[in-house]
Design a protein around this nucleic acid. Structure first.
Lengths: 254, 254
DNA sequence: TTTGAGCGTAGAACGGTGTTCGACATCGGA
DNA sequence: TCCGATGTCGAACACCGTTCTACGCTCAAA
């Protein structure tokens, strides 16, 4: 009986303690206590997390912790982790601005749009992983697709050419960004004491060239001979080159 | 008391049972009991697992289980899961055959090599994920790189062009294969009763076209107008198109 | 004003993952 | 014969996505 009483009293006792605690700190009063936890807040928090620690840090638990709650709470607003990923790349794509088509500059305009997408991917390291797994027919990606299609058609590209080139470009942008993210991120190295950013980059490149030159000439003659060409491509030269190739019109027009 | 005795005897009792069991089946005798667990066996088993259940099924525990052992045993032969992934794509790349360069057919030869690589990726669904994360300077990938470089140079491509085009091609092949794997794999749908493979494919394609046509014309005029071109590309037409664009020489030669 | 139903919150738990530790077995060579 | 090196592997740790469940809150009807 006593047990029963105690057990029964536990409940109201807890409430009593909670009430006292609530009395204790009325700062941040009124309604800040709610923090209503909307989809927007979740997506926003996840993006901040990616920017700071990379996409692999985006865990239901960690996103929830950043919102000062538990992982289970997120599932009231988002079906899956996969759905969250879709929302993330949707949000990301919504920041890409589509220009007014100008037939004289369609190539530059396309490079601009693809560059925006690439920069978004690079801003959130590793998110390109989600981009490749995401539903390819999300509304935001379709919006970019439509924009690129408009630019290409305005430039005089045949529809089938435009469709395939855009598809390939999207795939390439994601793959390029993913590789770039992995190359700079994964905390593997950065050994050695002092760093000067530019010198570090040069050293990296030089070391790759050197390693390639160490290969046996009998098996890798061309790799050794053109090691420099193979490992060059700082900045986004390779990126620009590839898109330039992808969007070369077939008929020698322009 | 009996319990205590049993517990103490457990150890030698187990050994006793093992001995009897060993007596029981001397078939596959001599030394088959060892099953020495080499790197080759691990890689081979992992590849079989991918072929049957996809890359996401490749878990240290599951690979070990397929080898009738525990996960910890693998770490005596492979540093990480990442290292295992590298070995897997290395093994995969080693099956790509490089042709003798023939300057007259360099384009077809390159398409052939890239097609081999693509088919390897498609044979092991999802392994392209590992290909994108893998060390880009593995010996096997360098071998393919050297082969492609040889073909392109034989075809008269400038070295810088060849280097960048090959890099882009590798990225694209991986991305294309990954998307193709994800599209057919992930068990999302396949609902509905009876399946005829060809009809199913047609239905899929038709449904995508239909969905695109449902978009508001005001926002997606070109997408609606060219829905068919956007969603076509069965077989590997898109693949061939993209590589064709990537390897078009700049100077209008050939 | 009271009640009750609904909804968002969140702790606990389940099954799975990569990886490490440490005791154990086995084998090659002195 | 013994002994050290090497390989094996159960147990455990920390983390993951996801589900279950109870709990608190809000708001509209009674």
């Amino acid at each position: 009986m006593a047990e029963k009483n105690a057990k029964r009293g536990d409940d109201s006792r807890q409430r009593w303690i909670a009430q006292i605690a609530a009395l204790e700190n009325p700062p941040t009063p009124a309604r800040s206590r709610k923090a209503p936890l909307t989809v927007e807040r979740i997506v926003h928090t996840a993006l901040e997390l990616i920017e700071a620690e990379g996409f692999e840090a985006v865990t239901m638990r960690r996103v929830a912790a950043a919102l000062q709650t538990g992982a289970a709470s997120l599932y009231a607003h988002v079906r899956n982790k996969a759905a969250l990923d879709d929302l993330l790349i949707g949000e990301l794509c919504s920041h890409v601005m589509l220009p007014e088509p100008d037939p004289k500059q369609w190539q530059a305009q396309i490079m601009n749009v693809c560059g925006q997408l690439r920069d978004q991917f690079l801003r959130y390291p590793g998110i390109a992983t989600a981009a490749m797994a995401a539903t390819p027919t999300s509304l935001e990606t379709l919006r970019i697709n439509e924009g690129l299609l408009t630019l290409l058609l305005a430039g005089g590209a045949p529809p089938q050419f435009a469709a395939w080139a855009i598809d390939a470009a999207y795939l390439y942008v994601a793959a390029y960004s993913l590789e770039a993210s992995l190359r700079s991120r994964p905390g593997n190295g950065e050994e050695g004491g002092d760093h000067d950013n530019e010198h570090e980059h040069d050293n990296d490149n030089d070391e790759i060239v050197e390693r390639l030159r160490m290969l046996p000439t009998s098996l890798f003659p061309n790799t050794v001979a053109h090691a420099r060409e193979l490992s060059t491509g700082d900045g986004h030269e390779r990126f620009d080159f590839t898109l330039g190739q992808l969007f070369r019109l077939p008929s020698s027009a322009e």
